[in-house]
């Protein structure tokens, strides 16, 4: 059991670091574009396309990590009127719905990725599905996080980070 937990945490760490690195990569690509345009009067023709591709991956991975960190919150002023027991059941229902959303991304996201396999991106000529593949990948992560939360396992990994913004 501990072994599984360890492997899971490693995968999760890699996933998160990859997300943060893609943000840095985005800054790098865009600044490079500014400098080549201003100084040498040209822009790599793939620059915008690669930027958008990275952006889609960064965004979806960040969204998945957001589920792990309980960032996507709802409005609780109405449900606070109800007893604790009601809210406990509701917690389960919400976790189950998040799981269903993850499953949607895995299944339908995969279907769509396959459908997009035979068309290409205009600049790099990579298959269009490379963008959409982010759906099934992050879907798996969202499924795992919500499953753990369903069984009352706290998935937060950043207790030390106070809300800066």
């Amino acid at each position: 059991m501990n072994g599984i937990k360890k492997v899971g945490l490693v995968i999760d760490t890699i996933f998160e670091k990859f997300t943060l690195l893609s943000l840095l990569a985005l800054i790098f690509v865009v600044t490079t574009q500014v400098f080549t345009r201003k100084l040498f009067n040209f822009v790599f023709f793939w620059s915008e396309e690669v930027t958008l591709l990275l952006l889609a991956w960064f965004a979806f991975m960040a969204i998945a990590v957001g589920f792990r960190e309980y960032i996507h919150l709802g409005i609780d002023s109405f449900t606070n009127l109800f007893p604790k027991s009601f809210n406990k059941v509701l917690d389960k229902i919400i976790s189950a719905s998040v799981f269903a959303f993850g499953l949607y991304l895995v299944i339908q996201g995969w279907d769509f990725t396959v459908l997009m396999m035979d068309s290409t991106l205009p600049a790099t000529k990579w298959p269009s599905s490379i963008t959409y593949a982010v759906m099934p990948v992050t879907g798996v992560m969202i499924c795992v996080y919500s499953l753990l939360q369903f069984f009352n396992i706290n998935t937060t990994r950043h207790n030390d980070i106070e809300e800066g913004m």
Binding site: N41, F42, V43, F45, E48, A123
Partner: peptide, 21 residues
């Protein structure tokens, strides 16, 4: 528009191709 052909086309005419939205 960002595509290899359009960039090659500009270069062939001696212009400097600048892709942008």
């Amino acid at each position: 528009q960002q595509s290899k052909i359009n960039i090659d086309f500009m270069e062939a005419l001696g212009a400097s191709a600048t892709p942008m939205p």
